[in-house]
Structures are given as C-alpha cells and as structure tokens.
C-alpha cells in the first residue's frame, strides 16, 4: 500500500448523494481478474453524459473528490477504490461513507475524510468558483486546509498510523500467528468445517 502523509491537489465537486459503488464502477467492469485497468470504468455510465463534472476539462488532473453524503454505499466491490485510485484520486471527502467502502479505502491507501456537510459544501463551492484552487489534506495533523481556513477531521490512531507507514495488514496480523493458533485450539467442538 502506498503511504499517505499529506496531499495537496485540485478537487472535483461531485454534488450527488448516495453515490453507490455501482455508480463508481458498474458491475460489467468487475469481470476482470487483475487489479489494474479500472480507471476507464470509473463512473462509466455517468461519464457518457458530456455535462458530467469529470468530463469538464478544467477538472482534469484533480486528485481530491468532494462528494455529497453516503459515498460508496452498496456493494463491497473494492474495484471502486481501485478505479478511483487508478483515475488519479488520493482522497475522497464526504459527510458520510458506506462502511465497507471506507474500510476498503484504508486498506489501499485512498484516504476517506469525513467532514460535516456544510464544510464539504464550502469546499465544493470553492472548487466550483476556482477549479485551480488547491486543497491540502494533512493526515499527520488530521486537518484539511483551504487557503487560510482549516478543518480538523477524525480518524482512529491505528488506521492513521497504518496509512502513514503504508503497512500491509496481513504482515501485521501474521506477527500474531501464535495467538491465532491458541484461539483455534479453544474453538467449540461442534463448529462446522466445509470438508
């Protein structure tokens, strides 16, 4: 996973709520067996509309997505995270996220930032007024900055540490392989196996 400490970039205002993962990447794109090549599937149906915000050339190269609430609801497809990252996004800012999407993001190093709706709207308005305006997302300080304004956001210490170090969860867990073995020996005898 790519480490995340701080990121400064331009932002795309996506003024929609309930942006479910079927919109982020439609199911037809999930047939791939690799982890790459998903950038063209990002918002594939919406991008067919020339007026869709991502088709506006002034937002090309933006790396922060500013969405309405309940971003990433629905399907557990991690392909949604891959598509956003491969398109070039490092951060998504919204008032609420689907739980599974948010989890998937932090496994991959895409930072989901929760800020109150009015702050997201303030950022969206700024990016609409001036598409070249840059926003800084500072994970070390847990802060989003726009010009002289700053808003702090919450993220638990452990996830923040893992993101900042770019650590692989599996490697961390395997350090506790002995604990897992001990637990396994004490499981209830009637629990099923698939054999």
């Amino acid at each position: 996973m790519e480490a995340f400490t701080t990121h400064t970039g331009r932002a795309v205002p996506l003024r929609r709520s309930n942006v479910d993962t079927d919109q982020i990447i439609p199911a037809v794109w999930l047939k791939q067996v690799s982890r790459t090549g998903f950038e063209n599937g990002l918002f594939a149906a919406w991008r067919e509309d020339p007026s869709f915000i991502l088709n506006n050339p002034v937002y090309q190269g933006a790396s922060i997505l500013l969405s309405g609430p309940d971003f990433g609801t629905g399907s557990s497809r991690e392909h949604a995270v891959w598509a956003l990252q491969q398109y070039g996004f490092r951060v998504v800012i919204a008032a609420r996220f689907g739980d599974i999407f948010r989890n998937n993001s932090t496994k991959m190093g895409l930072l989901p930032v929760i800020l109150p709706s009015e702050v997201v709207e303030r950022l969206q308005a700024a990016a609409e007024a001036d598409p070249t305006v840059e926003i800084t997302v500072d994970l070390a300080e847990r802060e989003v900055r726009l010009g002289s304004e700053a808003w702090s956001f919450e993220i638990d210490d452990y996830t923040r540490w893992r993101l900042m170090e770019g650590l692989d969860d599996i490697g961390l867990t395997l350090r506790h392989a002995d604990d897992i073995a001990v637990y396994e020996n004490g499981r209830q005898p009637w629990l099923p196996t698939t054999v």
Binding site: S76, R77, E78, H79, V81, I100, N103, N104, K107, M108, D169, I170, T173, L174, A177, I180
Partner: peptide
Amino acid sequence: GIGTSEVEHVLAT
C-alpha cells in the same frame, strides 16, 4: 461483507 484486500487477509490468517 468485505472487500478483496480483506478476503486475502482472511484467506491468509
């Protein structure tokens, strides 16, 4: 439900 990174995690651990 979990994503693919977690599927890998559960497979391994």
